[in-house]
Computed example of a mutant assay.
Amino acid sequence: MVYPQELKYHREHAWVRVEGEKARIGVTDYAQKQLGDILFADLPSKGDVIVAGEPFGRLESVKSVSDVIAPVSGTVLEVNEQVVEHPDLVNLDPYGEGWLILVQMSSTAEIEQLLNAAEYATIVQEE
């Protein structure tokens, strides 16, 4: 599996692309493969506040419904409406067109608590 080096990872299988004081968030390739075909994405609204370590949305697949855990805290600036309309984008391109939300981070220091690609790969291997 591929884990882009420029991203940071949460052990609950979310990724973060840091864009200054903003964070683009999605789920990892591993997560989407575990879920299977994603049929529905329940995401927060613009202006909602998310808290690191807590669920901010759900992805429903043919196999199950899974919470998406926030890797950082902040205010939702943008929701990927393409994923809401076409949830399978998460399966097709989890690190690109399948991103979920863009947030204004409350504290960029939270990024230091996240994993790099090698550390995340080790966690996946242990599961």
Rank of each mutant, 00 (worst) to 15 (best):
K33S: 12
M105E: 02
L43W: 09
S106W: 02
V79Q: 07
G47N: 02
T108L: 03
E60F: 06
I50M: 02
D88N: 12
G53P: 07
S61Y: 08
E21V: 13
V16M: 10
E85M: 11
S64Y: 04
G53Y: 09
W99V: 02
S45L: 13
V79K: 08
D67G: 08
V103N: 02
K63T: 04
S73E: 10
K8F: 12
I50N: 00
L102R: 07
L89V: 03
D37M: 09
D67P: 11
V65E: 05
S66W: 10
S61W: 07
N91T: 02
A118E: 15
D29G: 10
P87L: 11
L92Q: 15
Y120V: 03
S61I: 07
N80W: 13
R11P: 00
V68G: 11
V83Q: 08
D48G: 01
V51Y: 13
A118G: 01
K8S: 11
S107W: 08
L59C: 05
V62P: 00
A121M: 01
E12P: 08
R58L: 14
W15N: 04
Y3S: 15
E6I: 05
V90R: 02
G47Y: 05
D67Y: 12
L35M: 15
T28C: 04
E19R: 15
Q5M: 08
G98K: 04
A70I: 06
A23Q: 02
V103E: 03
I38T: 10
E110C: 04
L89P: 01
P71S: 11
W99H: 03
S66E: 14
H86W: 01
L77C: 08
P44H: 10
G96N: 10
P55Y: 06
P71G: 09
K46L: 13
I50P: 01
L43D: 07
S61T: 05
P44C: 11
Q32C: 08
M105D: 03
V103S: 05
L77T: 06
A117T: 00
S61M: 08
E19A: 11
A121Y: 00
A117L: 00
S106H: 09
T108V: 15
K63M: 04
E97K: 15
K33M: 06
E110Q: 13
A109D: 15
G20N: 14
Q34V: 11
V90C: 01
K22R: 15
T108G: 00
E12L: 14
L92I: 06
G74R: 06
P87D: 07
I111H: 04
E85V: 05
E60R: 10
S64N: 13
P4R: 12
E19C: 03
G96D: 10
Y3W: 12
G98A: 03
H10N: 14
P4D: 12
V65M: 11
G53C: 06
P94W: 04
E110I: 03
L7M: 08
V62S: 05
P55C: 10
I38N: 10
S73Y: 09
L35W: 08
S45F: 05
T108Y: 00
V83R: 08
K63P: 06
G36C: 10
I38G: 07
Y3F: 15
W15L: 07
N116L: 14
H10E: 12
G98M: 03
A14E: 14
D42G: 08
A14Y: 02
K63S: 07
G36I: 09
A109C: 00
L7T: 04
E19G: 00
E85K: 15
V72R: 06
